[in-house]
Design a protein around this nucleic acid. Structure first.
Length: 356
DNA sequence: TAGGCCATCTGGTCCT
DNA sequence: AGGACCAGATGGCCTA
């Protein structure tokens, strides 16, 4: 791959290098006739000089002897009346050296690209395991990290308390510090009307009570691979998401404290069949849904999504209450308001969530 | 058009 | 010495 890249680019690099050297030499003649070994201010090769040989060998460079000869010549001229400078010798930028430098830089660039691709790949994997996964409308990197952090804290809080929070509490925990679009997205994924949600947040400060969710959705009624769990009673008070017109591109979060997605289960359709739908009121980096997406899109409407209230005004903003862990003093108490899930989640299930 | 997000390039630093 | 990692700069794309 790299070798192919080099073979494709090398001729251009050589040509560019030759041009560059030619230009440089012309400039040198204009302003530095007295110093044939002058290196311009834009001599970017200096810090990378150390690795030149290995890479020149890689590039099949045969000009090293010439380079050395030129260096010697250069040093001889320097050894005149000027005092000798310590440290590494300044080397003249020959065409071969410029070429090697560019090859080195290209290799470094390729590595950096690969590294960033790996990083992005890891971020994609993270997006798949945090709430609201979407193939078409990805969370930004920073929002993914924030949501992941909140998700971990929320799950930890559930573990600690042994109780499941109501959906509003859960969403609020997830949305701490998130941008407005992401907050909308998360709330939408939980099928929560964000108008109520946000109003509740802002009128009740860091502590809040359970609002009446317009959908009466229990947070643990998301698609769950372990519906056979004795603790789960499908269709009992919670929206059966399976009967929904899935496909907004969003993946609901796994039931917090409930069950883990069983990727091996045929029931679990992974990230490809999101459970809830939004109406496009998200203001984030949205892409036009594909025709396929539209087929199962927008079955719900969140009229309150386009609120102009900045996210940082929310009581759970970055400077506001924090959740989870030892810094949970502002965590609202969890409420169990749904009849069919009003018992603490079995810890086996919780553990299964982390070890699926 | 401004702002957000992203990919890429680049040079510096640190580590093995 | 070479690679990994990092942060700054830059330009493109998209959306409000």
């Amino acid at each position: 791959m790299l070798s192919r890249l080099f073979s494709e680019v090398l001729p251009d690099v050589q040509r560019l290098a030759a041009d560059w050297v030619e230009d440089n030499e012309n400039e040198d003649k204009d302003k530095d006739d007295h110093d044939p070994c002058h290196l311009g201010d834009d001599d970017l090769d200096e810090p990378l000089e150390g690795s030149s040989r290995a890479e020149s060998e890689m590039a099949g460079d045969d000009d090293d002897e010439d380079d050395d000869a030129e260096e010697e010549e250069c040093e001889d001229e320097n050894s005149g009346d000027k005092p000798k400078k310590r440290g590494p010798k300044k080397r003249k930028m020959t065409a071969a050296r410029v070429e090697r430098s560019k090859v080195r830089r290209m290799k470094a660039n390729a590595r950096e690209r690969t590294r960033m691709h790996d990083l992005n790949s890891a971020l994609d994997n993270l997006r798949k395991v945090v709430p609201c996964y979407s193939k078409t409308q990805k969370l930004s990197k920073i929002e993914t990290l924030r949501l992941a952090k909140n998700y971990i804290l929320a799950l930890g809080e559930i573990l600690r308390n042994g109780k499941r929070p109501d959906v509003v509490t859960y969403v609020q925990m997830l949305c701490k510090g998130l941008s407005q679009p992401t907050t909308n997205l998360v709330a939408g994924c939980l099928q929560l009307n964000t108008r109520n949600f946000l109003t509740e947040q802002c009128t009740d400060g860091a502590r809040f009570h359970m609002p009446s969710s317009p959908f009466s959705v229990h947070p643990y009624s998301y698609r769950c691979s372990r519906l056979s769990s004795p603790h789960y009673q499908p269709g009992s008070g919670a929206i059966n998401l399976r009967s929904h017109s899935y496909g907004s591109g969003y993946e609901a979060p796994y039931p917090p404290g409930g069950t883990s997605p069983d990727y091996s289960s045929p029931d679990y359709e992974g990230q490809h069949s999101p459970p809830v739908c939004l109406n496009g009121g998200l203001s984030g980096r949205q892409q036009e849904p594909s025709e396929t997406d539209r087929n199962y899109h927008y079955s719900m409407h969140y009229s309150g999504l386009a609120t102009s209230r900045p996210s940082h005004s929310l009581p759970f903003g970055p400077s506001g209450a924090r959740s989870g862990g030892a810094h949970s003093e502002n965590i609202p108490p969890f409420h169990d308001v749904h009849l069919h899930h009003d018992r603490a989640p079995p810890y086996e299930d919780l553990n299964a969530f982390f070890h699926n």
